[in-house]
Amino acid sequence: MEIVMSAVIGLIFAVAIYLMLSRNIIRVLIGTLMLSHSVHLILLTMSGLQRGAPPLLFLEAGAYSDPLPQALILTAIVINFGVTAFVSVLVYRTYKEHKTADLYDLRGAKDE
């Protein structure tokens, strides 16, 4: 399972990078979002999938899945939400200011 998961994660990562290389700022935004998805999945996969019960102690299972990566991912998801939201506002503001969503047009003057 982990091997298949890794391959899928690699695919998500590749598409995320590809999107970030686009001209359109919206695609870049979606690319960053996909990038974070793949990172969360890596963290989950690295710790081994489907081992033991959910990390809830009242279940009184013999083995629990590792709570630490989950705590890490939870933090990552929330931070990522902050970053995505920030970038969204940045994209919005950029468009309002420059009236273009094309990154080639957004580049600075040559002599800067």
């Binding site: 929330v78 939201a85 920030f86 969204s88 506002v89 919005y92 309002k96």
Partner: peptide
Amino acid sequence: LVVGSAMTFILSIVEDDS
């Protein structure tokens, strides 16, 4: 904080009248 920041993000765009 989470309620506040989530609402701030979205409302800042929605309420922007420029």
